[in-house]
């Protein structure tokens, strides 16, 4: 019998709500529901793409998973421990096995520290190598991300955006993480540099085998890099599945319209005739029923009432839509 491998990370029913407190009941501000009832799993060595527009809660979710932000309820089981109820010791273990890569390559590095010192700090704090080997380990890590060891002496401000992002990745790798959360880590870079960083991530994944949660709004990049993808809309995962399946046969109208809205680099294809109307509503006042129904061209009367539809439970490719997969017209 095949034993199903245990996921590295399993998130169940995660909610992150902000605000909504106040002493006087009448003046209480409604909570901002950034992440609603999200469940997902990441296998060791797997790359999961987390896709959505601004305000979809993808970054908040990424931070909550690493316990870098508050969470309201739910479970985050990392390597067998529920980190949502973590003790100080558990959190330390999480920090030793996970790392984050950020969008702004400059902002993620302390401007007053040489990049070598920034990497050395990780090695010292986590006692990764004996202090005599720190210098050579820094050189190793810099080589790993395609930089000359001489860069250890430079400061972030002397480097280009792409080089800084490589340093950020080297620092993340210094932890020797099992899981990396990359939050829009190529969005701030020029196209010609984006490719270099993407290739680096693909190379590192093969060499080191860490799992990556890749948060992005650029679907083309996600398609290139990720094994599986989860599409978020207003704090909920509306569709998840193997990347190619989701991209070729989207089952949620939102995914379908998102895919159609990407400007295609084909001079013979013009603009899509009827772009999806409207804009995502505020996460403070979520619509009843399916949050997408006010913009959905397929919406039925049932979509605007009751509980939002849940992700289906059939197979790896699942969508939170009451329509059968064939009925979506965008």
């Amino acid at each position: 019998m095949n034993v199903k491998p245990a996921p590295l990370l399993e998130v169940t029913g995660l909610n992150v709500h902000f605000g909504g407190t106040g002493f006087i009941p009448g003046l209480r501000t409604p909570p901002l529901r950034a992440v609603n009832d999200v469940s997902l799993a990441v296998m060791p060595g797997e790359t999961l793409g987390l896709v959505g527009e601004s305000g979809s809660g993808k970054s908040t979710l990424g931070r909550a998973i690493l316990r870098l932000g508050e969470l309201t309820s739910g479970e985050i089981v990392f390597d067998g421990t529920d980190m949502a109820r973590a003790t100080v010791g558990d959190l330390n273990r999480l920090r030793r096995q996970s790392a984050m890569i950020f969008q702004d390559p400059y902002g993620a590095l302390n401007p007053r520290m040489r990049v070598g010192d920034a990497i050395a700090e990780v090695l010292r704090v986590h006692r990764k190598v004996p202090s005599s080997r720190i210098g050579s380990r820094i050189a190793e890590l810099l080589n790993l991300v395609g930089l000359d060891a001489g860069y250890a002496n430079s400061r972030p401000l002397d480097l280009s955006g792409g080089q800084c992002q490589r340093i950020g990745i080297a620092r993340a790798l210094a932890v020797e993480p099992k899981l990396i959360v990359a939050d829009e880590c190529v969005a701030a870079l020029d196209v010609s540099i984006q490719g270099q960083i993407l290739n680096l991530l693909m190379d590192l994944r093969e060499q080191i085998g860490m799992a990556i949660i890749f948060i992005a709004h650029d679907l083309a990049i996600v398609r290139r890099l990720c094994d599986r993808v989860a599409v978020m809309y207003l704090g909920r995962i509306v569709e998840t599945g193997p990347t190619e399946e989701v991209f070729t046969e989207p089952r949620h109208p939102y995914t379908a319209s998102l895919l159609r809205a990407i400007p295609d680099i084909d001079p013979d294809r013009g603009l899509p005739e009827n772009p999806l109307a409207g804009e995502p509503p505020s996460p403070i006042a979520l619509p009843c029923g399916c949050a997408f129904h006010p913009r959905c061209p397929n919406a039925l009367p049932d979509c605007s009432t009751g509980e939002p539809p849940r992700l289906g439970r059939d197979g790896p490719h699942r969508a939170a839509c009451i329509l059968p997969p064939g009925e979506i017209r965008i």
Binding site: V191, G195, L198, A220, I221, R224, L225, E244, I265
Partner: peptide, 16 residues
């Protein structure tokens, strides 16, 4: 050529 949409999943992106 270095647009990530040009090419197949998992394939390295062409770069400058």
């Amino acid at each position: 050529a270095c647009q990530p949409a040009e090419g197949h999943p998992g394939e390295r992106v062409r770069t400058i």
